[in-house]
Structure formats: structure tokens, C-alpha cells
Nucleic acid binder design. Sequence first.
DNA 1: GTGAAATTGGTAGTGACTACCATATGACTG
DNA 2: CAGTCATATGGTAGTCACTACCAATTTCAC
Lengths: 213, 213
Amino acid sequence: MGLREVKRERTRRLIADKAFELFGDHGFGRTTVEQIAAAAEVGPSTLYRYFPTKETLVLEFVDDCLADAVTWFREQPALDLPDGLRAVIGRVLEQLETNPDRVRGVFVLAKQNGSVSAHLNELIWRFRNDLADELVRRSAGDDPRHAEFVAALSAGIAMNIIESVVRVWVDAPDTVDAQQLSRQAMALLKTGGIPLPAAQDPTGISDNSGHDS
Amino acid sequence: MGLREVKRERTRRLIADKAFELFGDHGFGRTTVEQIAAAAEVGPSTLYRYFPTKETLVLEFVDDCLADAVTWFREQPALDLPDGLRAVIGRVLEQLETNPDRVRGVFVLAKQNGSVSAHLNELIWRFRNDLADELVRRSAGDDPRHAEFVAALSAGIAMNIIESVVRVWVDAPDTVDAQQLSRQAMALLKTGGIPLPAAQDPTGISDNSGHDS
DNA sequence: GTGAAATTGGTAGTGACTACCATATGACTG
DNA sequence: CAGTCATATGGTAGTCACTACCAATTTCAC
């Protein structure tokens, strides 16, 4: 709309970029928000109006990618679950590949700094929860407790695939095809290539008494 | 051994308990470390010698449970993977059931406070990574890249089961049997009761070219 | 251009956390 | 039992993330 929003978006991006630059040069912990504000030529209080915490400076892009994928998935109710999940995974990776340098930078910073790592992990979990909520919404109306449990596991596996793929991909974005790697993960899962936890003796496995409906 | 360590352990526990009490009464954010130190009748600087951050005050117990399970798993190399993973899951749940109130408290606080949630999630991821490392160590010496990838997925699923079970369990520790619920999750996983991500059309699924060995 | 609304920079403060120092306390030696 | 040594403790001063608030400036609508 107005010139206002354009300028605001520009300032926002400028701050994030400068922050990323400084974090890359001197590390997350050794960079103060005052330095970032100074580099972006804004006051510290302006910076805090755009980014509520220092961590969001780093994580906003990844957060956007995940949020976008969830929103997109909500608008695709026609897909059945296996194909739908495959598609969200693809969507997330697609979004992340928009800016590989940024994603790699985020993971590097997360490796260095505990707080960044913690908040990154929280983003990922929130994604899983959002996904699980959507799966519950789609599930046929049987026992909601069971549906939530299944949805959590299902969404968790999707999250795991994404995370595992990304961790490989960020180490060598040029030689690894993230999409293909994710398909490989799905295939391994389907064909038993991934060792799953299971008792050799399936005691009490087939009864449902542990789950009070 | 000496009287010193006994006293130290007592002080440590006293601080953690008082902290938990105050967090429960007034919330995590509304409780200052000075208040905790005062309640435990120690100076703030002493408190920081025991607990490096405010979050560790909350999360130490869960952290210990997970660390214990990993250590235990490392000492059980005889188990094959499916059964071993089942056993770690059981071990973690067993440890958590040692102090259900504490675990529930942790999850309640995590729900209220973003930083607690973030650090809790990080603990869980660290557990997954430790588990994955051990799985890699056990894997036959083929392509390490592939082994790491598989291990990450495998450990991730174990982590997911634990997390999903615990989230149900903390809501009603008395009516839910965590161990049985985890076995149910494994059974669902094995019998296809959990929707997994997969393309209906398995394009490029069976070739290995995406994975450069 | 004028007034309303939004954006900004600055100030003062809180609270988590660190570095450092002086003191006190338990542990060991003669 | 006295001496001494390592360790534990409390306090002080300081940094930095973050908040609440205020005054000034800029943008938009009329």
C-alpha cells in the first residue's frame, strides 16, 4: 500500500542483514544489539520494535519458511495424508532453498550458541505442533485422544525428515539435492530401511487397553 | 565420601526445590533469582555456582533422566537395534516416572514460558543427537554419511515416541500407563497405523543417486 | 497546509549473568 | 590440638538484554 510499509520493510531487512553480518564476523554472543542498531543506523529501541529478541534476528527466515509451509498445507485439504505430508516436507525444503546461505548461517550460529540452538529447536517443535493440529482437524471424528496421539507421531516423523535432511544439506548445499534426499528418507521408512523401536516379543502390543477411549 | 559433598548435594537440592516451588506459585517470569536465593538462604552468587542459568533450575531433572538413559544405552551393546531402541524409550519413561510431579511441572512451565520451552526442546534434541551418535557407532562400517542420516531418523523416531507419550502422560499421570502407550506407538508404527509421508507415485524413490557415497 | 496516526530516538529502569575479592569453613598434617 | 590448605560462600561492581515511557519527527488523509 503506502510508502510507509515499504520503508518499514526495508528497515526490517536492513537490520536483519546487518545483524547477520555482525554475527557471522564476531559471533552471536560477542555482538551486542547496540552494535547492530548502530550498524543499521537506527536506535536500539527501534530495533526492538521490529525484533522482540536477539534470537529472532537470526531465526526469522527459518520461522517464515515453516509458517509458510503450515499455511500452505492448511489450504490443501484435498490431499490425502501420505501425499500431503510428502508435499509439506517438499514445501519447507523449497522455501529453505530460497536462501541457502541464510539457512546455513542459522545452523552454524545454532551450533555455536546455546540460546540460538534452543530457540531454533523451539521453532521446529512449533512447526510440528501446528502440523499435528492440522492433522487432527483432518482426522475422522473418532476418539480425539487417539487422533492427537497419532497426529503427533505423524507430524513428528515429518519434522524429523526435514531436520535430518537439512542437517545434511547445510553441510554441502551444492552437492546435495534436499528434495531427493527427503524422498529417499520416505522410501527408507516405507521399506524398513530405518530401524524402528520394537520389541522382539510383541507383548501386549495388539491390545488397546492402555488407551482409555 | 566427605561431609562436604553431602552438604553440597543438600544445598543443590534445596535451591532447586525452592525454585520449583516459587515458579509454581508465581510463574517462571515473575520469580527472580534473588528471590530463589533468598528462599534457599544462600547468596545469588552461590546459586549461580550450582545452576548456570535460571532454566537449568527447572530442567535439571529431565536432563538427568535423558542423560541417564543415554549412558545406560551405551552400556547395552548386545541389544539389536529395534529392541535396543524400545529399551531406551522404556528407560527414559521409567526414569521420568520416578518423579511425575516434577515432570508435569516442567511441562506446565514450558507451556507458560517461551525460554523454558526452548531449553526443554533443546534437551530433547540433544538426547536425540546423543542417541544418533551411539547408533552410528554401532552401525556396520559402510558409508558414514548414509549411516548418520539413518541414525538421525531412527533416533528421531524414538525421541518422537517419548515426547508424544510424555505429553499425553503429563496430562493425566494416574490414568495413563506410559510404558504401555509407548508400546502402542511402536505397534502403530509397525502396522501402518501412523500415516507416513510418501508420494503416491514413487518417483525416483528406489534409486540411490541422490546420495553421493 | 493541517491535524491525526504512526514511526522514531532517547532515558531510566529491571533483572539475568559474570568477574572478582575477602572471608569462612570443612579437610588433612604435624 | 594447632596450623595450613583447598574449597565454599557472600558481596560488589559491572555488562547486556529487554521494557516502559516520553518527546520529537515523519507520513498519510482531508
